[in-house]
Amino acid sequence: MFENRKLEILTLAGLFAFVVLFIIVSSQTGHAFSGSDDVGSEKIAELTGKPVESFTPLIPQYVPPSGEIEATLFALQATFGGVVVGLVIGYWYGQKRRPINS
C-alpha cells in the first residue's frame, strides 16, 4: 500500500513542511506577508527616489475596489481551473472504466 503511495506521501510531507515553515516564520517575526509584487514596487520607488503613488498606469486599468472583490476574482480563477481538472480527470476515468462495466 505505502509502496504505491510514495509520491503522495512525499507531496503531503512537503506541504506539511511548508505550513510548519510558515507558522515558524510568522510567529517569530513581525512580517506583514504582503505580496512580493508590492514589495518589488516599493523597491522600485526606493531606487528611483519617487514615491510609489507617483507611478501611474500607462494604460488605464480596472482596479478591484476592495480586497474582498479581489479575493472573489482570484477564487473564480482557481475555481475555473479546478472545474476543468475535475472534468477532464473524470472524463478520462470514465473512458477507462467503460469497457470493464459493459
Binding site: 516564520v25 506583514a32 505580496g35 512580493s36 509584487d37
Partner: peptide, 9 residues
C-alpha cells in the same frame, strides 16, 4: 502563498 522572506508570492 506565504514564504520564508515574510512576503507572499
Amino acid at each position: 502563498l506565504p514564504s520564508v522572506t515574510g512576503s507572499c508570492s
